[in-house]
């Protein structure tokens, strides 16, 4: 299975009935495809909507209906629109249950770097800083390494998006919980070993009872 699909399927299992969820651009967006159809999860897009539906069929796009990545989307029944101040009031005010976003680096204190590589890539933080500070639960969904270079580190070297806010890290190899005393490996992909995970992680991992990662639908 594609690493991104493994990650998206596993993140989807973290969502509960009634949750308000914000999915970041890119890999996190895929999570929507694997949400249990038996539960109600309300997807927010920070450009001003709750009730994000699937991508419209060709020819059905509405130029006034996009997600925060600028893609054309649809609105589910019960969905609604609001302005940017209301949208970030929802985000900062603690009304978002879960936010899922990608990472350049994430560290053993739960700090995240995701918005800038100085002098190389300066796109801006967009809504990420508000989301990570405001959401009740922050899940980082990322490939375990960037072409072999560990993304999970003892301390982020890039400028931070937020300090000590990440709760859970989901990669194609492992599920890692961030606690006061550091990173806890709680699940591993059935096709990998704890040793392989440790070798690809640039931070100490604590573990006692590592369960197999659920990657089936």
């Amino acid at each position: 299975m594609d690493p991104k699909e493994i990650i998206a399927r596993r993140v989807a299992k973290e969502l509960s009935d009634g949750d308000l969820v914000n999915l970041g651009i890119g890999l996190p967006t895929l999570v929507a495809n694997f949400i249990d159809p038996k539960i109600d999860v309300y997807l927010q897009s920070e450009n001003g909507l709750i009730g994000l539906g699937p991508i419209p069929e060709k020819g059905q796009e509405d130029k006034n209906l996009t997600n925060a990545g600028g893609q054309y989307v649809t609105l589910k029944q019960g969905g609604m629109y609001f302005d940017s101040a209301t949208s970030f009031g929802i985000i900062r005010g603690g009304h978002v249950n879960v936010t899922v976003l990608g990472a350049l680096e994430v560290d053993s204190e739960g700090s995240l770097a995701s918005w800038i590589i100085p002098k190389k890539l300066v796109p801006g933080m967009g809504g990420a800083m508000d989301l990570v500070v405001g959401a009740k639960k922050v899940i980082v969904a990322t490939t375990h390494t960037n072409k072999g270079n560990p993304k999970i580190k003892t301390q982020c070297s890039l400028p931070l998006t937020a300090y000590k806010e990440v709760d859970l890290i989901v990669t194609e190899l492992a599920v890692i919980e961030v606690k006061e005393d550091g990173l806890h490996l709680i699940e591993r992909h059935p096709d990998t070993t704890i040793e392989e995970i440790i070798n690809q992680t640039d931070a100490p991992l604590k573990y006692t009872n590592v369960k197999p990662m659920e990657v089936k639908s």
Partner: peptide, 13 residues
């Protein structure tokens, strides 16, 4: 000047 989106919205509001 890069500003977090929610901060920008609230500064304007």
């Amino acid at each position: 000047t890069l500003v977090p989106q929610g901060t920008l919205a609230e500064q304007i509001r």
